[in-house]
Nucleic acid binder design. Structure first.
Lengths: 143, 143
DNA sequence: TCAATATACTTAGCATTACTAAGTAAGTAG
DNA sequence: CTACTTACTTAGTAATGCTAAGTATATTGA
């Protein structure tokens, strides 16, 4: 077996390649990566405040404010007043936003499925387990 | 076993989380992501022309020209004339650049190793195999 | 109650990184 | 030698990150 360092290094480069491959699919949506990522939080995690969104995306509130402005211009999300706190916002995806997100997700997954289909069943089981293992470690990572 | 779609979807979100985690380490280097990524090509792949670098990083030559200018300002890489073609450049990492890259690589790997150490041997073997499997598919991805 | 503080968000200014379009210099083909 | 191609740069625009500073609302405590 490789050393733990080798495995970590392998995970590093593998993740880089995987992400690059998946990003190529996103480019057809004509929405920047920051907006797409924030939108996915809204679609899969439900509406939330701007600061909560900023925290999950690990950017400052100032940056998130502009990302949300961009999403609004693209009609993918909207700002609503928060029911309990007049300072805060409730940000939610529009119908268009949900549709775009699901379309993008489909394209990403499809591009991977094409390659996974060429694998033996044994290898698929291995990847499935690997995903489960990696989900457990680093659980602090936001969505 | 999950469907192939589920596994693909799992790989997608796992890669996103992994990358985000690793990027946090990079932020301490005070070099932007595009420069860091280009520098890694130079350090681990050796000197190459600007267009070759652009091709590997999947950006236009115009974009790469500015990234290389940034690397030069940071004293991390230098432009040299290409021996065989007066139009082209040979771009190479400086000693400082190599050192910075290796330091960054170490930080990335170290942050993962800390978590991997908590896993059982069986799980480590699984991750190692997963890396091997993922290296084979999508081999067209650049470095 | 009211003043001080804290929290939520926005705006402005700067740097990086992406694009296209347009320009320069050098190699190649007829 | 002319026309074309290739390699790179520069300029202009847009998206995305930051910090600093401002506004509005909530909370705390004398």
């Amino acid at each position: 077996m490789d050393s733990i360092e080798d495995i970590a290094s392998g995970l590093n480069s593998t993740a880089i390649h995987l992400i690059r491959r998946l990003k190529r699919q996103d480019s057809q949506l004509n929405v920047g990566p920051a907006r797409l990522s924030a939108l996915s939080v809204l679609v899969f995690g439900g509406p939330c405040s701007l600061s909560e969104l900023a925290r999950r995306e690990q950017v400052t509130s100032a940056t998130m404010s502009r990302i949300v402005s961009g999403l609004e211009q693209n009609l993918l999300a909207r700002r609503l007043p928060s029911p309990h706190d007049a300072r805060a916002l409730k940000i939610e995806a529009t119908r268009t936003g949900r549709q775009l997100m699901l379309k993008g997700q489909k394209a990403r997954v499809h591009s991977l499925v094409k390659d996974l289909k060429r694998l033996r069943k044994k290898d698929l089981v291995c990847l499935q387990q690997a995903v489960t293992i990696l989900r457990q470690i680093g659980g602090s990572a936001p969505d």
